[in-house]
Amino acid sequence: MPARPRLLYVTDLSYPARGRRYCDEDIALTSRLRADFDIALCHPLEAVALMDGFDAVVVRNSGPVLHYQREYDDFRARAARGTRVYNPLTGRADMAGKQYLLDLTGAGHPVIPTVDRVEDLLRLPASDLYAVKPKAGADSIGLEFVPWDRLPDLAWGDVLVQPRINFRYEVSFYYVDDAFQYALHAPDPERRWVLEPYEPTEADLSFARGFIDWNTLDHGIQRVDACRTRDGELLLVELEDLNPYLSLDRVPEATRESFAVAMTASLQRFLRVRPV
């Protein structure tokens, strides 16, 4: 490994994310990481052509993969030949699709109950409306809410169904490797990305850590998204292990710096690991 490792940082700076500015976050973070790495930014569609010239590829705010699925599949195939990718492409949460929500439901974990077969509908708690999500969806693309009597007519096999939860707020926990960094919450359920710092309890951290431990990543950045029900329970909404937006503009400068330090150390450890 050279004295200053070369990183190809994958980001879609122009992606129109609702309530988020990918470009600001990635410009600021790469500016900080340049203290320890030589970094080049590239669009997801350019990653395959450029990746061989770098010590590792860092996938960050690259947008929903469904917009470039063929190119992403090619990227994964090329990376399997020996390219280091951070996060490593071994995660079993959003990185691998939505099957994990079904697996976690079946195993009794604290997750919003999820089914993908019409014969399993009676396993869901009663609700006024049900969230229907494409299995290949991301960033709320294709999400709709439907009443019970419409559920049997869905295109089963391609969708997930969950009860609509009347939650108090959403909260996200951010991790580098297995170390908690900070938490943010959205006090207004109608404004998902208007976030404020959140001080988690020990019970909150135990909840979030359970999903970090369940996943199969030794290195990388993960975001545990949850909702707080009216009864006070936390339920998993999503475990983002591919390219989680970090909302670093919503945390104090000291927290941004400590996150950059943690990410730098994680990348350095990752680059020292002998390739498989």
Rank of each mutant, 00 (worst) to 15 (best):
A3G: 01
R4K: 13
L8F: 04
L8P: 04
V10G: 00
T11C: 02
S14R: 00
P16W: 03
G19V: 03
G19E: 02
C23F: 01
D26E: 08
I27E: 03
L29P: 01
T30Y: 08
A40N: 02
E46Q: 15
E46G: 07
L50G: 09
D52P: 03
G53H: 12
G53T: 06
G53Q: 10
F54V: 05
D55Y: 11
V57P: 08
R60K: 14
S62W: 11
G63E: 12
G63Y: 12
Y68M: 04
E71W: 03
D73C: 02
A80M: 10
R81Q: 12
G82H: 08
T83Q: 13
R84H: 06
V85K: 04
V85E: 01
Y86M: 04
P88E: 00
G91I: 07
A93E: 01
G97Y: 00
K98E: 02
Y100A: 00
L101Q: 02
D103W: 01
P110M: 03
P110K: 02
V111S: 05
I112A: 06
I112S: 00
T114A: 04
D116M: 05
R117M: 05
D120F: 04
L124R: 04
A126S: 11
D128A: 11
Y130D: 06
K135Y: 11
A136I: 05
G137Y: 05
E144W: 08
F145Q: 12
R150C: 10
R150D: 12
L151V: 12
D158W: 13
P163Y: 10
P163T: 10
Y169Q: 15
E170A: 14
Y174N: 13
D177S: 14
Y182G: 09
A183H: 13
A186E: 11
D188P: 06
R191E: 14
R191Q: 15
R192E: 13
W193A: 12
L195Q: 10
E196L: 14
P197H: 08
Y198H: 12
P200R: 10
E202I: 02
A203N: 10
D204N: 10
S206H: 06
S206D: 05
A208W: 01
R209T: 04
R209F: 01
G210Q: 11
N215T: 13
L217C: 02
I221W: 06
R223K: 12
A226S: 14
T229Q: 07
R230E: 15
L235Y: 11
V237K: 09
V237R: 12
V237Y: 07
D241E: 09
D249C: 14
T255H: 15
R256C: 15
S258L: 11
F259V: 07
F259G: 10
A260Q: 11
A262P: 09
M263N: 13
A265M: 10
L271D: 06
R274D: 11
